[in-house]
Design a binder for these strands. Sequence first.
DNA 1: TCTTTTTTTGACCGATTGGAAAAACACGAA
DNA 2: TTCGTGTTTTTCCAATCGGTCAAAAAAAGA
Lengths: 229, 229
Amino acid sequence: MTEHFQQTGLGVAKGASAQKRNRAETKTRIRFAAERVFAEYGYSGASFSMIAAEAGLPKSNIVYYYSSKKALYRVVVEDIFNVWRAAADTIHPDNDPLEALGDYIDTKLDLARTRPYGSKVWANEIIQRAPIVQDYLEGELRRWTEERIAVIDGWSAAGLIRPVSARHLLYAIWATTQHYADFTHQIRTLNDNKDLSAAQWEETKQAVKSVLLCGVAVSRGQNCSVPGT
Amino acid sequence: MTEHFQQTGLGVAKGASAQKRNRAETKTRIRFAAERVFAEYGYSGASFSMIAAEAGLPKSNIVYYYSSKKALYRVVVEDIFNVWRAAADTIHPDNDPLEALGDYIDTKLDLARTRPYGSKVWANEIIQRAPIVQDYLEGELRRWTEERIAVIDGWSAAGLIRPVSARHLLYAIWATTQHYADFTHQIRTLNDNKDLSAAQWEETKQAVKSVLLCGVAVSRGQNCSVPGT
DNA sequence: TCTTTTTTTGACCGATTGGAAAAACACGAA
DNA sequence: TTCGTGTTTTTCCAATCGGTCAAAAAAAGA
């Protein structure tokens, strides 16, 4: 069997035959089913039969498309990492610091809302000491983090923001935004067992930006305004 | 067999016989072993044999003291919750807001350092939608959270802090402090695969307080100082 | 059409799981 | 000693696990 290593999500290369298109669709369907099951039951708690049931396919079909549980899991983890990485493009020397960080927080909170399962899988993987994707951490994540820290330090040096620890600011942003995905259930319980409404999500964005970015601004009014959406 | 429901940790009621003392010690040993194993492998990934090996006891011994995996797990989860609850005693109307919140952050970061496994178990349980301790969330956690929010709102109303969303501030503190426990491995990897030194932990405390509390203070100098330790 | 390749599916396997059952052991009270 | 109670340890089991395999079915190529 030839391997395709089709990394991308829903899209498929144009010109693909009907068979290949269907193949990609099936793989994607399995991937999202797996993301949900891995998130809710952890790597060990998730079984092929659960993923198969979630995807509406027989068990052996899962094995056919992803040769092992580990391989399927890795694809899921890498996917959410790539999505997050793209969200941080806004942290760039040319951008306005407060606006850039505000946009980053907004985007990550949007992802917490739309892709909570991916975030949970990532959290699980890290909690368990990254048994599957440690190479990713030491390679891409490390490089990517140092780059962003350099940008923020640059803003500091240019006097565009107060001198803060770029690393810990980044960690605080990660922690807080991902909290709204990973701890959805706790937040829901503390919200009378109701999911956050659209208005509450807006409120959340404003509050998170207010808490995390007020300490960053070089000056502020009494109400410490941060860029809205 | 008479049940004891011995909730407490290391201590044992005075006057206890040698046998009872040994019983309590064994139970505690099992509990901490279980905490480590549950943290590193998740509920499903943890097996009696792993916990037994960690505790240095035969497998059936675990079942003898905690009649099921679920029961043992519940004890572990409740324990870390009680420790965290005690840490928040400082959030009290009579205290100075910045000092109280600063102390809370300091204590929670100390716990992130000394009790990282408990935090990870809690995170896992919430991520998986609290299948075991949902009653805890709807009872004690909900009541306790609303109380703290009321205190912070009181500070706001009295003009002691800027008007911030008490709920989201609390969530940000939880998220960030627990991040240093749950994501220890990621932080370690981004620190050249070395654990944080004592100095780096101090730096972390200052940075976290600076980021989270600067937006709370009613006024600040250019360097936005927060109470140190 | 016939052939070849890809996809679907159910039957099956050795290993491991949580936990029940009971035998073996320790030890103070009688 | 003998007994009874609490503890330790071994043995065993049904269920489930990840994954293989081969046959059936479908699709593509000739």
